[in-house]
Amino acid sequence: MRKKRMINKFTLYISLVILTFIFLFPLVWMLVSSLKNEFQIFRDMQSLQAFLPPAPADVEGGYFHNYVAAFQRVDLLRYIVNSLIYTIGIIIFGLIVNSMAGYALARFRFPLAGFWLGVIIATLIIPPESIFLPLYVLVYDLGWVNTYTGLIVPFIANAFAIFLFRQFFLDFPKELEEAAKIDGCSQIGIFFRIIVPLSKPVFATVAIVLFINHWNDFLWPLVVASDESMRTIQIGLQYFMNEPPIKWGQVMAALTVATIPMLLIFAFLQRYYVQGLTHTGSKN
């Protein structure tokens, strides 16, 4: 009996280790290869060396020579700044607009409130892929092609975020707001001075979900930001893959750069993200 349990445990851990290898090796290979030169990358691929950082003796021109070269070859910095403006713009305006809408649907009684809630939830079904052409025509007519406005404005309102905010505000105790009302605080004042500061978790969750979605966005930036100076990082990455000479080390460096913000988010803010995830999972 005991022996059997030992064997079970052993197979469990062995399979866990194999799975870990399968799930982790591309990421490790990317990080490690970004520190090597071309010769080392191809030589190391013959063995498990492929997953180890270069030996200190092998390093010429510093660990980060691929990064320096990548930034010199293409205006990566500009792409990163564009991506940050795009995502942070959507986050800032999105938090304001969607939290207000969620609050309205959770707290106020007004005609058609139920109807609008239904409409907002129904828009969740519309696949963004099916509207990007007419959306492009619209943004083109507005003169917003190759502008931050054109990138950001169409994606500020977000039905999913509105829904998350509404659920949160529904559970929010009413007493505080009533007390503030008696003290003569206006509705807008109540919302921005009392509700918002006490709702940090939901704001953090929505901000992170928005960041992850839009940092990784591909289709819309590809379509609207055709000008090189407006490219986001996800679009700019393709340069390293398509324009010869193709240097594997530089590719890996550029891919790593594009991943770092996400790594930071998951390393430090995972709690909020998982909260958001479980919320979406259990709500359905």
């Binding site: 591309p26 990455l237 996400m262 790594l263």
Partner: peptide, 11 residues
């Protein structure tokens, strides 16, 4: 944590 673009290029 890797975007679809990053993953696609890497693979």
């Amino acid at each position: 944590v890797m975007s679809l673009v990053v993953v696609s290029i890497l693979w």
